[in-house]
Design a protein around this nucleic acid. Sequence first.
DNA 1: AACGGAATCAACCGCACCAAA
DNA 2: ATTTGGTGCGGTTGATTCCGT
Length: 245
Amino acid sequence: MAQEEMRKGPWTEQEDLQLAFYVNLLSDRRWDFLAKVSGLRRTGKSCRLRWVNYLHPGLKRGKMTPLEERLILELHSKWGNRWSRIAREVSGRTDNEIKNYWRTHMRKKAQDERKLNKVSSIISPSSSFSNTSSFSSNSPDVDFTPIMENNERNFYHTGGQQKKVVDHDKGKNMKVYSMDDLWKDIELSEENETKSKQIMPSPIWDYCPNTLWMADDQDESKKFPMIYCLDNKDNTFLANNGLFI
DNA sequence: AACGGAATCAACCGCACCAAA
DNA sequence: ATTTGGTGCGGTTGATTCCGT
């Protein structure tokens, strides 16, 4: 039989709204099922990705703070390219975001350092750079030692399995800053950034003004029912797991 | 203002893992 | 024990935006 053709490429606002609604309705699991019943012509995989990387209310957007940068550097030197592992420790950031950040910024940094190395080797052939940890290649053995003591469910943990990784590194120290210091600093810089409006909430929530909203039923493509978003100031809007409470 | 290259980021792909059938 | 479906994850691609000339 003819399989309904799946859509690919960028998501439309309409699709975002539809996805958000069904995630709220069904929770962020069973993505294939959700994709089917929602009427979205997207794969479950695609829906999950869109939710996790873009629509989730816990997402922080905007530039990485210096402390986040340091944290990523530090964690990457410990875990290598285990982006999801790193993302779990950097609150509000997705593995994709961190991966992208690393690729662009670190590549640039590496280029800069290469240039500097060239210059410095001309000036002083014996000079070298000592801080190479940020460019370490992937660690062969990966450690799952939790840095944060709580077992908070990260926003992109949507119930599926995780790759099993042997914990070889337990008890080893990799101290530059204490994690308490880092988290305090992050909180502080987040506060400052919020004030300067550099961090945006996930764009889908732009459609949820403080009071109440509903899908525009004039749009012919709307297949899902009315959506009501309550004021989130009194915690009646969305729980962290994406369910209405 | 126009163009080209670099940077950024959303999205896809393929594979691995796990649980249920 | 094997198969299948659902999901997580890392790598990669391609479109868009930014920036310098």
